[in-house]
Design a protein around this nucleic acid. Sequence first.
DNA 1: GCCAACGTTGGC
DNA 2: GCCAACGTTGGC
Length: 136
Amino acid sequence: MNYWLVKSEPEAYSWADFTRETSTDWTGVRNYQARNNLQAMQPGDLVLFYHSVSEKAVVGVAIVHAAAAPDATAEAGSPWVAVHLRPHEALARPVPLAALKAEARLSQLALLRQSRLSVTPVRPEEFDLVLELGAG
DNA sequence: GCCAACGTTGGC
DNA sequence: GCCAACGTTGGC
């Protein structure tokens, strides 16, 4: 099992929107590196859900429900893919970007090293630590 | 609102 | 194939 992080601007699509829908196709990724990460996701993988821009915090955990398939919002024949995600659990306390940056053990976190990439891998120990930080 | 990072486009 | 110009993302 692998771990990931996806970013979303809460004004565009928030954790609340996600849980209201009960599942979603993670469409709209138009960056090759991010697409490669989407393609590597397998059902059961866990995905940190990060609110960018206005909130800048990890707010929940999603689970990959279906592996990558062509992105229905992209032109037919285009290389873009989407995975199907379902909410797994909300964090008791959102973990702000500042807290991620302040934690030395997260210094290699892909989110911090490549802040513009919208889908990034997360190491198992990093994932566990973020969950600890977000526990009640 | 500004700007750094970085991906893309297009002229040469 | 190089690189300048430009657009976008996202933190501050």
